[in-house]
Amino acid sequence: MHGVQRVRQSAEAVAAKKLREQSKIREYLALTDEVLAKKAAEDWSREALGLTTRLLQINPEFYTVWNYRRNILLRGVFPESSPAEINDFLTDDLSMTTLALKMHPKVYWIWSHRRWCLENVPDGPGTDAEGDINGWRKINWERELFVVDKMLNADSRNFHAWSYRRYVLARMPDARSETAELAYTTRKIEANFSNFSAWHQRSKLLTSLWGSGKLEYSKSKEEEFELVRNAMYTDPNDQSAWIYHRWLMGAGADKEVLEREIAVIQELLDEQSDSKWCMESLVHYKRLLLQKHSSMIDVGKVTNDCRRLLRELRGIDPARQRRYEDIGACSIADHTMF
């Protein structure tokens, strides 16, 4: 690190460190050989389960060992256990993966094993904090939502955690309302406008709420435009809000909405004259005007605007010059070429 004086290690210290590392590697390789040998021998014992625990704590990306662990539980441990004991085993595995996710929050195999654990919790009695009787399934699923909340507090943009959250919400015995989840995404977005995963979750929720009629479409959509405009103005260079804005506009926006949003983006471009996302969005929406509403607009002016913006984009974003050239060469609805 800059400004930190390096401490020169003695030759003896370097050699000792190298020996420790070599010893750890030998131990890991020996443990791997032992686990894989037991797997090949179809050893479903609790001793084998303990060995997989040790190995996965060292290397949680070893998906073959996760698969073996599940087979041990299904074929060796669960058949000789009571439902309460099975629940205890699965609770232990959930705790083990919670610790693993703190160090490795984006390892798919850890999230996958949590799903398997939840799906295999047996029916049975349990007691919640208020003393009411609940099944083990309900208790575990509710606890799981709390865990994923903690994960997203630590890293609100972890797409693995967002995907897992959707999975948990879809399968909870007592379904969380979509409006409550929409409020959750609002909090996450307002805390960090660049949270692409939260925007994505929001689009899924709104599609469902609008489709079911649980949320009034016109009023709600205008509120979404206000939210996404705030994000665009806060950080014009962050792509998350622009992608969401494009989803919100859709492919069939009416002329009034297109012209309104073009004016909003042009106003932002006047303040941020080198904003690539402003220029790209203006080209996209002006092309929609040409394609959908050519009979009601000045085609020559809008076409020239697109040509000018694409020239500017080639200048400020030379790495994508060919892309802008391809856009400019595309035919539009009335066969005009820009």
Rank of each mutant, 00 (worst) to 15 (best):
E178Y: 10
D238N: 15
R314A: 09
T32F: 03
I25Q: 15
M296S: 15
N195H: 02
D88E: 11
M96S: 14
L94R: 03
R137T: 12
K18V: 09
A15T: 13
T98Y: 06
L36P: 02
R114S: 00
R8D: 14
L289M: 10
V228L: 02
A253P: 01
L31N: 02
L74M: 11
I189G: 02
H113W: 04
H335S: 15
A129F: 11
P122A: 08
R308E: 11
E267G: 07
P236T: 12
G50C: 09
N140M: 14
A170S: 14
L36H: 04
F78Q: 06
P173I: 06
F78L: 06
W277R: 03
T234I: 07
E259V: 04
S208T: 11
W111R: 00
S275Y: 00
E259N: 10
I265S: 01
R166E: 08
K138S: 08
D305T: 07
H335R: 15
Q272S: 05
T336I: 08
E80F: 09
G126P: 02
A37E: 10
V4M: 15
K39M: 13
V228I: 08
E21V: 08
L51W: 00
V65E: 01
A37H: 09
P122I: 09
D270G: 12
N237V: 10
A40D: 13
N230F: 08
Y233L: 13
D123F: 02
W199H: 02
T186E: 09
A198W: 00
E312Q: 15
E144S: 09
W247V: 09
E280N: 06
Y167A: 05
E256P: 00
K221H: 07
T91D: 12
E280R: 02
K255A: 10
E80L: 12
L206S: 03
E226L: 11
R8T: 15
Y28M: 05
T179S: 12
K286V: 03
V283Y: 01
D43W: 00
S294D: 12
A251V: 14
